[in-house]
Amino acid sequence: MAPGMGGSPPGRRRPGDFVPQRNEEPAGELDLEKLEQQSRDMMELHMLNRDNAEFRENSGGFLDLSYNGRVYEDVQVVRMFPFSRPDEYLSVRESGDQAAEIGVIENLPRDFDGPGEEAVRHQLALRYFLPAIRKIYNVRQEMGCVYFDVETDYGRCQFAFRSNSNAVTRISESRVMIQDLDNNCFEIPDIRKLTAGEQKKLDVYLT
């Protein structure tokens, strides 16, 4: 690991003050201390856990976070590794365009429990709405678009994606994700469990 990557002890600087000052810094006028401070901010991972942070679902159904004595409203929870580690390394970000990172949940079931964990999970379920395809009824290609008619665990639906658009991503040997024209995502947890006919319909779009 690079020297200094260990970083400063947590809580030395209020993460609420974590504003992207570096973008406003004119080039060349680099003050060494400031630079170091910024570097520390840039590299630091503020780990959130039940001891220093509390999640609560507010009345509007959004997620609030109290962390180091400060309350952040309507925070977003982003999975850094949505496929490989869905419950680990969750980036908790402020609302708004900038969406600066407040902290990171390293392991949700380990670091949180009870209503806090539930609230985060609920947010994640909304953010990562991912119906799993159980059955493929029909696939047809027309005018450069591919139309799928499928049965998912949320019910039957139809969606479309552009052909030749890498819309079908292979996450592992057997797991496949499809992103449609509206950025909705569908998952086929195990293509081997599809019938030979269904696999044949899908085959041409697989990478």
Partner: peptide, 28 residues
């Protein structure tokens, strides 16, 4: 480790744009 990867990305000012990718660090 994943932690090291995330730290390296943070240092390289890459962490934020990666988190904005729909599949984050898992994006192919």
């Amino acid at each position: 480790s994943m932690k090291e990867i995330i730290r390296a990305a943070k240092l390289a000012s890459a962490h934020d744009f990666i988190c904005k990718l729909p599949q984050g660090y898992d994006t192919v």
